[in-house]
């Protein structure tokens, strides 16, 4: 990574309301290409709300600014953001019955790359990535997330990450609900994306994943705010001491 590199993603003064309630209360982030940030925080602190609203979820009212590759994308629709190279791996990927993983992926890849990928070429690439992720090729023909186990859903999210090759990706608890083998596979995918210069924010509340993916920056997220940022050692400290010692009121923002 280059010290002078410009952030591939940044956000400033982001607040998010769900109805009357303010859930995200002022977040700033700047992620360089290939850099991995971890956001760790207790359940219900607003991590998913932050991730979804950054991607442009229509149900959330976001204020502040969001920049992707130096351009203001705050007001753009999620599909526009995706086509410009942003990605969100969902905490709870929804099922789309009747649509196969392969046909969905091909549509997504074509949309993001801005051109139809020939079927043959596409299949080859998809099967190679599936092999990287130790997925049964039969998966390509299954209906998207329909009846998938938690671990299968997460693998498919990572498969999409590797196929869409975004500039910046938010991964929302992609590590939760995985056994150790699956966790390693997911970590392998994340590391591959990072070495492709994808900047990433991993939302997690366990330190576990960070044994396999070394983050450059760790942020502690509580009650809608980043209350502390530091290096990988901060994750270990959280693992040992929990979150209580980091009361937002006492510590304040970063």
């Amino acid at each position: 990574m280059n010290e002078n590199a410009r952030p591939v993603f940044s956000c400033h003064g982001v607040h998010v309301r769900i109805g009357e309630k303010e859930v995200v209360k002022g977040v700033d982030l700047a992620v360089l290409p290939g850099e991995v940030h971890a956001i760790m925080g207790p359940n219900g602190s607003g991590k998913s709300t932050l991730a979804n609203s950054l991607m442009g979820h229509p149900a959330y009212a976001l204020t502040g600014t969001v920049e992707l590759a130096g351009e203001d994308v705050t007001a753009l629709a999620p599909d526009e953001k995706a086509r410009r190279g942003m990605f969100l791996a969902f905490q709870y990927p929804v099922a789309v019955p009747g649509v196969t993983v392969a046909s969905f992926l091909r549509a997504a890849v074509s949309a993001v790359r801005g051109a139809d990928v020939p079927v043959r070429e596409f299949r080859k690439e998809m099967l190679a990535r599936m092999e990287d992720l130790e997925m049964d090729p039969a998966f390509a023909g299954r209906y998207l997330n329909d009846g998938f186990s938690g671990g299968e859903k997460k693998r498919v999210e990572i498969l999409q990450l590797l196929m869409l090759k975004p500039k910046f990706a938010l991964l929302d608890e992609t590590d939760s609900g995985l056994d150790i083998d699956a966790l390693k596979v997911v970590a392998k995918g994340i590391n591959a994306a990072a070495s492709n210069d994808t900047g990433m924010v991993l939302v997690t509340h366990y330190q576990r994943l960070l044994n396999y993916v070394r983050p450059h920056v760790v942020h502690v997220f509580m009650d809608g705010r980043i209350v502390r940022s530091g290096g990988p050692e901060l994750a270990l400290e959280l693992e040992e001491r929990g979150y209580d010692w980091l009361e937002p009121a006492a510590v304040g923002g970063v």
Partner: peptide
């Protein structure tokens, strides 16, 4: 809405 958001986050209009 969640299905739509999911697909749109993958670049589909």
């Amino acid at each position: 809405d969640e299905q739509l958001f999911y697909l749109r986050s993958r670049g589909l209009k």
